[in-house]
């Protein structure tokens, strides 16, 4: 049995005096899996994602990602963790409008201290891989939604993360662009990239993930795994 990439044990999080955003949640994600977190608005799925990303801390329970106890990290530790272990893709891309596509993509590597030439080479590879190398010098504002999300994915993969987290990656896209992103994530997973996608979009969940976790009122209510696909994914990861 391979070591889990994500291991949540009895994780709870409550904001102020409201009801728990997440209650006693436990979840294990193994390398090569593509997991969709599904749930209605306010169900706790974004809280779960923030806890995995080290953007928030649980009130109780443990969060371990790729061997790192994320719940114990301080601000600086969290930053270093995000830099080295995860890549994030957001619903509204969160690209910096003042930077070119390449500059956006190299940003995590540059923050990690990678030399500019090496970072540029890696960015060029990723942009080519994702089919947007012709936009390398363009500013995000000139790209379509799908293209922007590809840039965001390229940026997320820049530091070769163990885990790719996507928060509603197709939520701001039209159908065609959404399908494009879905295919991209499927391809990445096929290459062995572990992915966790938070989404409302059932079609996206079905098309690009091999496991579906449902959350309602802060509790995990369902965890369904597509066995055949999952086995393929794990085998692919082992082969890497």
């Amino acid at each position: 049995m391979t070591t889990p990439v994500i291991e949540l044990r009895g994780v709870s999080r409550r904001y102020d005096d409201g009801p728990p955003a997440l209650h006693e949640a436990s979840l294990t994600v193994r390398p090569g899996e593509a997991v969709a977190i599904l749930g209605p608005s306010g169900s706790g799925k974004s809280t779960l994602l923030n806890l995995i990303a080290g953007l928030d801390r649980p009130d109780s329970g443990t969060v371990t990602v790729d061997g790192v106890r994320v719940d114990r990290l301080g601000e600086a530790g969290s930053a270093l963790y995000r830099r080295s272990k995860i890549g994030m893709v957001f619903q509204f891309f969160n690209l910096l409008d003042d930077l070119t596509v390449t500059d956006n993509v190299v940003l995590p590597a540059r923050l990690a201290g990678m030399a500019r030439t090496e970072a540029d080479r890696r960015a060029a590879e990723l942009l080519e891989l994702l089919g947007i190398d012709r936009h390398a010098r363009a500013y995000p504002g000139r790209l379509s939604g799908g293209e922007r999300q590809r840039v965001a994915v390229a940026r997320a993969l820049m530091n070769r993360p163990a885990l790719l987290l996507a928060d509603e990656p197709t939520g701001a896209l039209d159908t065609a662009a959404g399908q494009d992103v879905s295919r991209l994530l499927t391809g990445l997973n096929a290459e062995g990239q572990t992915i966790v996608v938070v989404t409302h979009d059932l079609a996206l969940a079905r098309s690009c993930t091999n496991r579906t976790v449902r959350i309602a009122d802060g509790r995990i209510t369902e965890d369904v795994r597509s066995q055949a696909v999952a086995s393929d994914a794990v085998a692919s990861q082992a082969a890497r």
Binding site: E75, A76, A79, R82, P108, L111, A112, R155
Partner: peptide
């Protein structure tokens, strides 16, 4: 965004 991408305090 910078912090999400790993910028330390």
């Amino acid at each position: 965004v910078h912090k999400a991408l790993g910028m330390t305090p």
